[in-house]
């Protein structure tokens, strides 16, 4: 898949984290971005917009990222979800990967790492 054809959902309660992710990904091209600021909004946006790739924070109000992954994966087992969180504990990582997340980015957001996971996703599709 080409980056310009991709629709990417960025779900983080921090407007700053959303902006940073969008800025980094935009250096690769011009995908369509969809945003959500809590776990419930992420689930709703996923169903509504059917994005190709999802960035999801763990610690969010309403429903947290772990619940959001489970609900999105239940709705669409082929969902491509990448966790971007400051909470990179062993158990969180395990929980996210078990629920079906494809990758885990530990904050602070590192440009090279984001580009690497996005590029890997584009090659998979």
């Amino acid at each position: 898949m080409k980056i310009d054809e991709a629709k990417i959902l960025i779900s983080d309660d921090s407007i700053l984290a959303r902006k940073q992710l969008k800025d980094i990904i935009s250096s690769l091209g011009t995908p369509t971005f969809v945003e959500a600021s809590n776990g419930q909004a992420a689930i709703d946006k996923y169903k509504e917009e059917k994005p190709d790739l999802v960035f999801l924070d763990i610690v969010m109000p309403e429903k947290d990222g772990n619940i959001a992954i489970q609900e999105i994966m239940a709705y669409d087992p082929k969902a491509e979800i990448i966790i971007a969180s400051s909470v990179g504990t062993q158990s969180q990582l395990k929980c996210a990967l078990e629920a079906g997340a494809k990758d885990f980015i530990q904050k602070p957001i590192d440009k090279d790492q984001v580009i690497k996971v996005v590029t890997a996703f584009l090659e998979r599709r």
């Binding site: 921090s14 984290a17 909470v87 990179g88």
Partner: peptide
């Protein structure tokens, strides 16, 4: 503005997130 406030939230979130990683 909201970005400045989000920066403060982000710093706190990052610090506390790293703390619980260290504790674990």
């Amino acid at each position: 503005d909201e970005y400045v406030r989000a920066s403060m939230e982000d710093f706190l979130n990052l610090h506390n997130g790293l703390f619980i990683v260290n504790v674990s």
